[in-house]
């Protein structure tokens, strides 16, 4: 059964994996920013913008990703907007997943109790710093599970970019299969490669969620500060301070 000379295709596979990861990272970062912007607009007091953002979200949530890809790559070309494959592919993923992420972010931001805004204002935070320093850090924790699901989903969806020959893993697979006529073997291997990327990613994200839920510091900066705090709390003595 295993007759494909994989060693000859190693470079193609590596290229495919790199391209897949590249689309994933670019698409996700863009979708994250777009999603957050849309969510904030939808929660703002600007009625017209709110309506536009809602319309955008509904539009892209109800069109298949494949149709979005075709519209952006082939459709726009007919009106003389020609995008290269990388731009068109990334843009499609951003446009599509931005809509989904905006829904996740919007509900997460709404789920932070209004009391948190009030107490921040009362402490002297401005409107903007309340949003970015108090509300969003809490909202993003709530949004994490949904966001993680979207990230893994986005990675898998890069395979649809085969339709515009994006040179990602699925495109490479098709090339190898057409050269070797070993479709079962080739696509099995490709499925394993996707699994090998997605499974560790989702496990890592789950681990992240659990750590955050348990209140463990994620970055070295906060870990250090908390260790320092523990030492300060342990060693403090009010009497010492008076004498000093």
């Amino acid at each position: 059964m295993f007759n494909v000379p994989w060693a000859d295709y190693a470079d193609d596979l590596v290229d495919g994996i790199i391209a897949t990861l590249q689309y994933t990272v670019l698409g996700f970062v863009g979708a994250f920013i777009l999603g957050l912007a849309l969510a904030l607009i939808r929660l703002s007091r600007f009625k017209v913008l709110r309506g536009l953002a809602a319309a955008y979200t509904e539009l892209f949530k109800n069109i298949p990703l494949l149709a979005v890809i075709f519209l952006i790559y082939f459709g726009l070309a007919t009106v003389d907007i020609t995008l290269d494959v990388l731009s068109a592919g990334t843009l499609s993923l951003v446009a599509f997943y931005g809509a989904y992420l905006s829904e996740i972010f919007r509900s997460a931001i709404s789920s932070v109790p209004t009391g948190q805004t009030e107490v921040s204002l009362a402490l002297g935070f401005g409107r903007v710093s309340t949003l970015f320093s108090v509300i969003l850090p809490q909202a993003l924790r709530t949004a994490l599970p949904g966001t993680n699901t979207m990230l893994v989903d986005l990675l898998k969806s890069t395979s649809l970019l085969i339709t515009i020959s994006a040179a990602e893993l699925m495109t490479q697979a098709q090339l190898i299969a057409s050269e070797t006529f070993r479709a079962l073997e080739v696509y099995l291997v490709i499925a394993v490669l996707y699994f090998a990327m997605c499974y560790p990613l989702s496990q890592f994200l789950l681990w992240l969620e659990r750590r955050l839920a348990a209140g463990k510091p994620l970055g070295p900066g906060r870990r250090k500060r908390l260790q320092h705090a523990a030492a300060l709390l342990e060693s403090y003595s009010p009497a010492q301070k008076v004498n000093a």
Binding site: P113, G115, Q116, E118, V134, A229, L233
Partner: peptide, 9 residues
């Protein structure tokens, strides 16, 4: 109304 994601400190 403490910030729930931060320690008391």
């Amino acid at each position: 109304l403490l910030f729930p994601h931060l320690t008391a400190f």
